[in-house]
Design a protein around this nucleic acid. Structure first.
Lengths: 106, 106
DNA sequence: CACACATATTCGTTATTGCTAATATGATGA
DNA sequence: TCATCATATTAGCAATAACGAATATGTGTG
């Protein structure tokens, strides 16, 4: 039961491993956005956002649909949305200790 | 409500961004283990595992408790465990598309 | 205290990832 | 078809992260 291959998991989770990608996911958490809108929201270069979107798409986290000259991106499904919500919940409880890697001193 | 700071989230999620760290989390998902046991399970060098454990600790994902000359590591709390379970659930649904970043060709 | 064992830390090197700039593709509409 | 706008891709350089080897710290025991 539920024993997904490690490699797949690694690839999937890679989607969460960059500030900009997390911002993109947050940006489209509740409603789809065009690339242009994402660029504005996240405030990064077109090329940069496009590359991160490619990554997120490859990770299976987001999907894009074309409509006219725009491409709308959104989370792949409700589970991914739940996952994002869960992060927030866990963080509520952990926030303090999160100093991450190197130097958790003060 | 539930609006954890982006920086904190980035740091926390960084914990999931490496194969070895994911393996460690899986290894201690259901019961605590000593560093030595983790080293054997994951099959990496002592130094390497120790560094990743420091990272995971800094990310707020795991905690360690000393008992005699051993240190037992375990997931910080039930929420983190739920998160890991959720990953598996999401992966069940996404598995196929997950080719991640660069080249989702075959 | 000296020794053995468990774990942590540091340092220098290598590998991976991200970024920018330039260019390419693809769709729309005059 | 040509011009324009939206997005994707490539290439080369810059920034980060990971690793192994060596060393340090800490704990129990004779």
């Amino acid at each position: 039961m539920i024993t997904s291959d490690l490699e797949v998991k690694v690839k999937f989770l890679h989607g969460f491993s960059h500030r900009t990608r997390i911002q993109i996911l947050e940006a489209i958490k509740h409603n789809e956005k065009t690339v242009s809108e994402i660029i504005q929201t996240v405030n990064a270069s077109q090329s940069n956002i496009s590359q991160h979107l490619a990554c997120l798409k490859g990770c299976g986290m987001v999907v894009g649909r074309q409509e006219g000259k725009y491409i709308y991106y959104s989370l792949r499904n409700q589970k991914v949305r739940d996952l994002l919500t869960m992060f927030d919940e866990v963080l509520e409880e952990v926030e303090e200790e999160v100093a991450c890697c190197k130097k958790e001193v003060e």
